[in-house]
Simulated scan of single mutants.
Amino acid sequence: MEASASAQLESLVEIPAVYKDPWYMITVLSLYLYFVTKAGPQFMESRKPLKLKQIILAHNVIQVVSCIYVIREVLYLTHNEILYFWKCTDNGSTPERVQRYYSLAFFIFWLKMSELLETVIFVLRKKQNQVSKLHVFHHISTVTLAYLLINVNQNGTAAYFCAFLNSIVHVIMYSYYFVAAVADKPLIEALTPVKKSITVTQMGQFVLILTQVPAQLVLCGMQPLVLLYFTTVIIGMFYGFYDFYTSAYQVSQRGKSQTPPSDSKK
């Protein structure tokens, strides 16, 4: 009866075509992929890198504020019980809560769309080395997960566990990016351990998300295709960040340890 009542409430919410029709999303992501891998680099090839510091600072602030909003809304929708990720939930027991569920899902969709700007900024600043396969995969896949949250979620507000953890990580990450963009060189060097910790935190969130999957599958049930796609994406992200961590930090650390000490008598 509760599931039926929840379904009736959800039917009262009209999902606009821009969220429901996947071709809107596919078109944007296709244009994004084309620009950051081909059109953008070709356009910038004979041009000087653009100075976009003010845009970068504004983007970081918007991301931090937006993620704080997501955290607050998730806590409200789950009655502050989002960390009990194994619980089966619905999208709301009142029209107001169901509407807030979808409003937050719509907001997250556009938030993930806005994150595509990061790659565009890399291209316009001629930082093409930062447009890695992991970076592009991460941004494209998060948009698709937001689409699934709107259209095929059958696990209620428990599905916001992923967005909740990711928003916490992003508050830390974009705050660091903001400080790094305005700080002087000595402070940036002092904050280097923070950058490493952010990568570890990102991997930690994926472990927690993957822990939720079997709990929700056994206790609440999940659509097989959604389960397969979601799990594949999260595992892919974890592997990508782990590979980055080992290549960026562990390899460099081994290089330092193998460097012969300088002779202070020379």
Rank of each mutant, 00 (worst) to 15 (best):
R100Y: 09
L116P: 00
K20P: 01
L31D: 07
N91Q: 10
K51Y: 05
P49A: 11
T89Q: 12
F107A: 09
L50G: 00
Q42F: 06
K38E: 06
W86I: 05
C67S: 10
L57E: 06
N60W: 01
V123C: 02
I68R: 01
R72F: 07
Q54V: 04
I121M: 11
S93Q: 13
M44L: 14
E115F: 05
K38C: 08
S11Q: 14
K51E: 10
E10R: 13
I82Q: 00
L134M: 13
E115Q: 12
E115Y: 05
E10Y: 08
L117V: 15
S66P: 00
T89P: 01
R125D: 00
N129A: 12
V36D: 00
L57V: 09
K126L: 10
S132P: 05
Q8G: 02
Y24G: 05
P95V: 09
K51G: 02
V70W: 00
Y34M: 11
R97E: 12
L83Q: 10
T94L: 12
F122H: 01
V65L: 15
V65A: 15
T27A: 15
I108S: 01
S46R: 15
A39Y: 10
M113L: 15
L75A: 14
E96P: 02
P95Q: 09
V131R: 01
Q128D: 13
A3Q: 12
R72D: 05
A7Q: 13
F43E: 07
